[in-house]
């Protein structure tokens, strides 16, 4: 149970901070004796980053592996790319999606998460929204090709997971994409 002493020290630290503030507030009278609280280690001083695998949260379940590892790229599904700051499907993307639809029709049990991504230009939050619009555009086209909407889920990573970690035209054009990952 490494969690309890942590929160205890935190509480103590808070108490201490409050006492300190109370001491600050009174200018004339002698400051409140900090001896009232046992000398708790400061929260900032003792945080060991490497030895804290468990979150200090209330719902501190063991951490599952990240969502990225959950979804595996599907061999038969090809990613599509988008123009800058756009979520419209060009002809190449449509052709790719049609091929993807053929694959999905042949594997009716497979469920797919469509991930929308952006290049690193642009504001983070706007790009999250843009990534979602890209994923939704791909999903809608697949649905129009007869794939059941229930099989397709959508998630946006904005510019958080670039395919190529570089800042040039080539990397950007590769990073503006929608990917298809199998959902287990």
């Amino acid at each position: 149970m490494p969690k309890q002493p942590r929160s205890l020290t935190l509480i103590l630290a808070v108490l201490f901070a409050l006492l300190l503030l109370a001491g600050c507030a009174s200018k004339t009278k002698p400051a409140t004796e900090p001896a009232a609280t046992p000398p708790a280690p400061a929260p900032m001083a003792t945080t060991d980053l490497t030895q804290q695998p468990v979150a200090r949260g209330v719902e501190s379940q063991p951490v599952q592996s990240g969502p990225v590892a959950d979804h595996q790229a599907v061999a038969g599904l090809t990613r599509i790319h988008f123009p800058y700051n756009q979520f419209t499907l060009d002809d190449t993307a449509r052709v790719t999606l049609e091929q993807n639809a053929v694959y999905l029709r042949n594997k009716p049990a497979e469920k797919v998460a469509i991930e929308g991504h952006c290049d690193d230009r642009g504001s983070d939050e706007y790009n999250l929204a843009l990534g979602e619009r890209r994923a939704v555009a791909a999903k809608n086209y697949l649905v129009s090709l007869g794939i059941a909407a229930e099989r397709l889920s959508v998630i946006s990573y904005g510019e958080e997971q670039p395919l190529v970690a570089a800042s040039n035209e080539e990397a950007w054009s590769k990073n503006r994409r929608a990917e298809f990952k199998a959902v287990r």
Binding site: R56, G57, E59, P67, D70, I155
Partner: peptide
Amino acid sequence: SYRAGNPDLYRKEIFSGGEA
């Protein structure tokens, strides 16, 4: 946070560490 596989909104109390 993407912790649960989707960008969800979390609230955290700093001093208690409580998170929802």
